[in-house]
Design a protein around this nucleic acid. Sequence first.
DNA 1: AATATTAATCGTAATATTGCAATGAATTAA
DNA 2: TTAATTCATTGCAATATTACGATTAATATT
Lengths: 92, 92
Amino acid sequence: MQKHLDIPPRVAILQHLFKIDACFCGDLVKEIGLAQPTISQHLKELKYLGLIKGTVEGTSVCYCIDTENWTEMKEIMSEFLGQDLLPKDECC
Amino acid sequence: MQKHLDIPPRVAILQHLFKIDACFCGDLVKEIGLAQPTISQHLKELKYLGLIKGTVEGTSVCYCIDTENWTEMKEIMSEFLGQDLLPKDECC
DNA sequence: AATATTAATCGTAATATTGCAATGAATTAA
DNA sequence: TTAATTCATTGCAATATTACGATTAATATT
């Protein structure tokens, strides 16, 4: 099988955007070890999902976390992760 | 684009195992609208990930959430989801 | 205007995922 | 032992995802 060994690009992008603490541009290409078109695609996806925002600044584009949507996503995830069983239910 | 419209099978399986509150078997086939081999594959994946456990009971198999690993996974996820930006960082 | 820089888009190849029909293995019921 | 039930496995088709080279678009610099 063997999966999830290295951190997925999209997660890496988000984490880096968090680490940079503010906006950021396509140095992600250097940061993460993928070609420029590939990173661009991932950024497009993340933007489509609403998790990041991007604004053109001259020739480059500044990306950052969309904190509102990030929070909303977190709530949805928490709802799923929050469900719990009673301790005794370990029946298997 | 158009994605994530219906709930992914593996999520549906987990949710149902939670809802049932205790163990469960392959009625998941009826519950979720997929063929038996398909469900079986998904259960195998979930077991491989460690999120569920399965014990043979006669001719059928009883599956349930592996609460320990589920908790561990939750912590990993929380670490990722927990990261936050300062409010002012909305620069885009 | 000509060139350089940065990022998006297009086309395509490689790979992964998903789902199912057919079959097999194990257990139970007759 | 034979049939029935339940689940796992196999093989395969359809589709989705991921990544990249080549190109284009837009702005900046000279």
